[in-house]
């Protein structure tokens, strides 16, 4: 699978359009000329080892990079659905700081020194925030607002948990689910 050139989705005012282009690019399949996985696996394993402040518990290691990539891809495809061209246009006036700041990361605070799942979670959060700006609705009524707050608070809780337990794949999956729910609800309230 090929990915388009890495445009930072946060840069410039055309982020949603850039994101759409990236998502369209994900639909194209292309085989690399050689097996790239061994080198990627080695680099990610090194990054994860460097990030670990203490020896891990007895919990077995799992194929994290593959899962994380799949999770992010799932988010990307989910965002693609949310941002599909035929989606009903909605007002662009997102709530400020819909997602509270990232939980304190494990490691030294640099991308290279943090656990892969935490880095993936941050990337997901950035994509989510960009998508949220795109679909954000008019001011929802109180019960709906409480649910949006609940989702935001839960996303923070999951990211904090992931910072402490950076090998927990299911937490990344839950984060993806919460973001998808938040986007879906925001869009739905805009239509209601």
């Amino acid at each position: 699978m090929t990915h388009p050139s890495a445009n930072d989705p946060r840069s410039g005012d055309d982020m949603p359009a850039a994101l759409r282009m990236q998502l369209r690019g994900l639909r194209r399949d292309a085989l690399p000329g050689r097996d790239l996985w061994p080198a990627i696996d080695a680099r990610l394993s090194d990054a994860a080892r460097d990030a670990a402040p203490t020896p891990r518990t007895a919990r077995p290691r799992r194929p994290l990079p593959a899962f994380a990539a799949a999770a992010v891809l799932a988010v990307a495809l989910g965002l693609g659905w949310q941002l599909r061209p035929d989606a009903e246009p909605t007002a662009v006036a997102g709530p400020q700081d819909a997602v509270p700041p990232t939980a304190a990361p494990a490691g030294d605070g640099t991308p290279a020194g943090r656990a892969p799942l935490v880095v993936m979670a941050d990337a997901m959060a950035r994509e989510y925030q960009g998508a949220l700006r795109e679909v954000s609705a008019m001011q929802p009524d109180a019960p709906a607002h409480a649910s949006l707050d609940q989702l935001d608070a839960s996303a923070v809780a999951v990211r904090e948990a992931l910072a402490q337990d950076p090998d927990a794949q299911y937490l990344l999956q839950q984060l993806q689910r919460i973001y998808a729910q938040r986007l879906s609800l925001t869009q739905r309230l805009a239509r209601a």
Binding site: T54, P55, R56, T57, A58, R59, A161, Q164, D165, A168, Y170, L171
Partner: peptide, 29 residues
């Protein structure tokens, strides 16, 4: 239930009966 000597976390693996099915439970706290 096994717990590591250092650091958090606990886990167990166990087969009930002939072990034909699969159950997986995961929590943070």
């Amino acid at each position: 239930v096994s717990r590591p000597k250092y650091g958090p976390g606990s886990s167990f693996e166990h087969s009930f009966g002939s072990g034909s099915g699969e159950i997986r439970l995961e929590t943070f706290s």
